[in-house]
Design a protein around this nucleic acid. Structure first.
Length: 376
RNA sequence: GGGGAGAUAGUCAAGCGGUCAACGACAACAGACUGUAAAUCUGUCCUCUCCGAGUUCGAAGGUUCGAAUCCUUCUCUCCCCA
């Protein structure tokens, strides 16, 4: 993997760059649609590639390990071959599931023991096994096994959790560097900064992560319920420590506004389930603001979903029709809304990139933050 | 014409003397969702409202301390036989 910076913004920490992988280039800042179980829910690969213009998507270690399982993934020749996505893939390590499945898991120094949400069976994830699984999935960028620290938590908890994540990171790196890729192309491992909302811990974690000297770095443990100001403060702080010549990935973020704020603080990569999950629940992110398309007020609104007409969904369907599909419980509703939302997210980061390069990012961003916060 | 069954809030549908403003489902309306246990979940849903109050269970009378629930008459609907 290589990272080059094409331009930096004069009035903020924003930068435009390019990540090159053996599955192709990623222009940053970028938003990565989440495809947990090997599928960006409700969206075809063709729409993802040609309409939404996604450059990289996510998969999840925990979900893919449980289903379809490593045997299938390996026989298929890795996730790219299995799901037909030929561009880069990033896999999350299951660290988020340590957080989100907290009732069904136990953390030990060795790793985490999960009770499968599918059949209740028990599985042990260790830093080493998670590296092996991600080798088998074959993602271009794989994530260290961490604990996404819950919020709120005590200082003690945050420190212990962070320190264990650091020890796990060293094991991840050692094990990863000892193994060869399975499918003939290189993979790279990103470490993850933790430390909750505590400045000292975040500094300590960012310095530790930076010292590992990997090809890219991630910030985890944010957007888990803390006030957005805290999220921005931690992002800014950590970005000031992580090396500038490597991509910075803010995990799990966020709303369109969160993304613009992240970009202006020096973040290059984002992922979030929000554009897809919320789409399936009737929430549309548009260039004019946020819409709950199920609301009665759209019943007779025959205008396009978004005046920017970014995707096929925007060009061919009206708000009234999409509302009808949602009210009627039609599958198409979630599909159209997902294409729109992802198309809008990708437009947002590409437009940010364009403006970082031509020098108009900051003023544009300020206007957009106001617009995008609106509830229509 | 004869015999039988039934009428409950937007719809379907429980209730069959007090704990009923009335189970439940659906519809409708609104909200939540941030490295996906989510095409999920939550709330409202007779009227006015903060607690609470006021009108309801086809209609009108009646019995009772008390009725959606019992009685009488009427209106309407459905089924069977002529």
């Amino acid at each position: 993997m290589r990272f080059t910076i094409a331009a930096t913004d004069k009035h903020s920490k924003a930068r435009a760059g390019e990540v090159s992988t053996e599955h192709g280039l990623i222009q940053t800042p970028i938003f990565m649609p989440v495809g947990t179980a090997g599928s960006v829910k409700a969206v075809h690969q063709r729409e993802l590639r040609d309409d939404i213009r996604a450059e990289i998507i996510l998969g999840n270690t925990y979900h893919l390990f449980l289903r379809p399982g490593l045997e299938v993934l390996k026989e298929a020749g890795g996730l790219h071959k299995f799901n037909g996505w030929e561009k880069p893939i990033l896999t999350d390590s299951g660290g988020y599931q340590v957080f989100s499945l907290s009732d069904n898991r136990k953390i030990t120094e060795e790793g985490a023991i999960f009770k499968s949400h599918i059949d209740g069976s028990k599985h042990m994830f260790s830093p080493e096994s998670v590296m092996d699984i991600q080798r088998t999935i074959g993602a271009d960028i794989i994530m260290a096994f961490d604990e996404c620290t819950p919020y709120p938590c005590t200082f003690e908890y945050a420190r212990n959790s962070m320190e264990r994540t650091h020890r796990w990171l060293e094991r991840c790196i050692r094990h990863f560097d000892e193994q060869e890729p399975l499918y003939g192309y290189k993979q790279t491992l990103f470490p993850i900064v933790q430390g909750s909302t505590n400045r000292d811990l975040r500094i300590q974690s960012a310095e530790f992560v930076a010292s590992q000297n990997r090809e890219g770095n991630a910030i985890g443990g944010l957007s888990v319920g803390e006030p957005v100001e805290d999220m921005y403060e931690m992002t800014e702080l950590v970005c000031s420590i992580l090396p500038a010549d490597k991509p910075r990935y803010l995990m799990g973020v966020g709303t369109p506004v969160n993304i613009l704020e992240g970009i202006s603080r020096g973040i290059d990569m984002f992922d979030c389930v929000m554009p897809t999950r919320n789409a399936r629940n009737g929430m549309l992110f548009t260039s004019e603001g946020i819409i709950n398309i199920r609301n009665e007020k759209w019943k007779k609104d025959y205008s396009p979903i978004d005046p920017l007409l970014i995707t096929f969904a925007d060009q061919h369907y009206t708000k009234a029709y999409l509302r009808h599909l949602f009210i009627a419980g039609e599958y198409l509703a979630g599909m159209i809304a997902s294409v729109h939302n992802l198309g809008f997210y990708l437009w947002l980061v590409k437009e940010s990139r364009r403006r970082i390069i031509d020098g108009t990012f900051s003023s544009w961003k300020d206007e957009m933050v106001i617009k995008l916060s609106r509830r229509l």
